[in-house]
Design a protein around this nucleic acid. Structure first.
Lengths: 343, 343
DNA sequence: GTTAGCACTCGTGTTATTTGAGTGCTAATA
DNA sequence: TATTAGCACTCAAATAACACGAGTGCTAAC
């Protein structure tokens, strides 16, 4: 069990290291006056804390730095959630702004988040699993081409250009779109393709000549390719952190951050509330020496997205946690206001 | 005036330096056998070339590296445009792929471009100045909100969520949209707002009760905020270049590349054809030690976009130039095929 | 005009040396 | 018994000293 003083020592060391990024030594601590004990006393506690695995040395005669276990203890027991009044204001101001659409709000949130912290922020848009089709439209652009536009009940718009097979004529197209709309409105996006196959293919075959060649076509319109959107802010901000003073680290960080799939998977698995993964607690190899703090936000009943900050394990956990939880709250509220009458 | 041999020396030195990134010395050159003269002879020519400003030394007893003037001479006189057969194939294959829409083609082009070169590629979407409105739609999502969708005659889709003022009722909205469509179809996107002000505001005032509160509203839908899209590929690719072995350079590169406005302006000013800016020839401070190669592509009559590669001044100009010119040709052709019947 | 030869330069890489902040341990102190 | 002072020891980082080698410029010979 840890004594009072050991707790204090641990806390001060971690705070100090988070601030300065330099190993902290007993003599310096004692001199700084933040703790009223002599260097020798502190030294003994440090040795104990190291034995217990909360601290580490970078080399045999260096000052101590927190281990991952140390950080873990710190965030679990030593952190007093800091209410970040001023930051909340900044966030609220974004939310207030007028005509932005959801995408823009999220994008801006990501940027501000990273601005305020100097870490890299990642926001993943809400999954569309529960979203339903509101309207499907196909607009001919020329003889060959058309745009298909899908609108969901949350106001999300997907569109894709397509080249139209020669054989289809305009009145047929109109007929098909009508049928599709009749049958597909209200169907969850994720099931569009299934419903199309089961209920509509047969129907259309009856009404449309030579439907075979068109089928694969409509299908392409309907089958969404993973529409989860990722917003990343401050990719270069993180270069300010001293742990990125090494070219190789930068390289590997950027190759990781550009691989959107990996990141998406990383965040999708997150549960409700605040999540903290420190260093090796992360399952993804590429960020095993970073920390990832996540928070979820709600859109409607059970759809949700995740906002996250990625930074060195030496992270300003206090600040980050309070920031993320306020942002997630604000974001949920803004979305709620936005969509509240749409259910 | 330069002698034959001096030209040869210059060319070989630049080629060599582009390949290895190491200053090249007379002895090594002579030994390598690519030129049948002794080190001393080469040395004399090098000294002359340096006097004329084509070469530089990194320090008093180092080998020579090309100066910016040297590169300039090289691209203007010494380069035989290399036909890159295999690369063209790769590019063609992208263009062939089926259902992609314009955005996707461009995105993929950017990625391939950077893949093939290890530089950072930038593609700027065609300006919408000449594009005309094809269809405007406003779809109510809930009591408060709606999505506005604008489709252009090139199949480009813009959309934005809006909150609807309480006062407007649905039938009014429908009326307004009809009027807007009637009057605005075929109007160039860029003039939408002007036409709206001049021709439509008056009209709507007559038909709609309490139009004042709605006006600012519709306007927000119509006024596009700079819809020029930027596609950047291989932001991290460029880290492979040895000139980016310095953390500060990386930092400044990334802060630059994330500033989309600056980049957009950089590219927008480019004239037709291939453009080469070496080092200080660039007007933008942040890339004064890089080279930027640009090529334009056409969409229709006079709309165009720009594709570009950004890399160290020690760039594989031969390869890059041929690659860019084939890509711009292919891109224009693909777009032409895509839209040819839409005019 | 070309080349060989030679003295000189200077970045790079290696090895020694010094310095200073840190540690662990033991003995003295409150 | 808990704390502190004192001391010998460690090691990273900074500095200096040195050799090496690829390069240059210049002069004289071919």
């Amino acid at each position: 069990m840890l004594t009072e003083r050991q707790l204090l020592v641990l806390q001060i060391i971690i705070d100090d290291f988070i601030e300065t990024a330099h190993p902290v030594g007993s003599r310096a601590l004692s001199k700084k006056g933040s703790i009223p004990y002599s260097a020798a006393t502190i030294r003994n506690d440090m040795a104990d804390l190291e034995d217990m695995g909360f601290l580490e040395k970078t080399h045999s005669s260096s000052g101590r730095i927190p281990s991952e276990k140390g950080y873990r203890y710190y965030v679990d027991h030593l952190i007093a959630p800091l209410s970040s009044g001023q930051n909340i204001k900044i966030i609220r101001n974004i939310m207030k702004e007028g005509i932005y659409e959801f995408e823009q709000i999220v994008q801006m949130s990501a940027e501000v988040l990273s601005e305020l912290t100097n870490y890299t922020s990642i926001i993943i848009g809400p999954e569309l699993s529960e979203t339903k089709l509101k309207q499907l439209e196909i607009l001919p652009i020329s003889n060959h081409t058309a745009v298909a536009i899908l609108v969901t009940d949350t106001g999300h718009v997907e569109h894709r250009s397509i080249t139209v097979p020669e054989k289809i004529d305009l009145s047929d197209l109109e007929k098909m779109v009508n049928i599709l709309n009749d049958r597909l409105k209200g169907v969850p996006i994720i099931q569009l393709e299934k419903v199309f196959q089961k209920e509509i293919v047969g129907l259309l075959k009856r009404y449309i000549n030579d439907f075979g060649s068109t089928q694969h076509y409509l299908q392409a319109i309907i089958s969404q390719n993973n529409p989860v959107k990722l917003y990343i802010g401050g990719k270069s901000n993180i270069l300010m952190q001293p742990e990125f003073n090494d070219v190789d680290k930068i390289r590997s960080f950027y190759t990781m951050i550009e691989n959107e799939n990996e990141i998406a998977n990383l965040l999708k698995s997150k549960k409700d509330g605040i999540g903290i993964s420190i260093g090796n607690e992360n399952k993804v190899e590429a960020i095993k020496d970073l920390s990832l703090i996540t928070a979820t936000y709600q859109l409607g009943k059970d759809q949700m997205g995740t906002i996250a900050l990625l930074g060195p394990t030496r992270m300003e956990y206090k600040k980050v946690i309070s920031l993320l939880s306020s942002l997630s709250k604000e974001l949920s509220e803004a979305l709620y206001k936005w969509y509240k009458t749409s259910e």
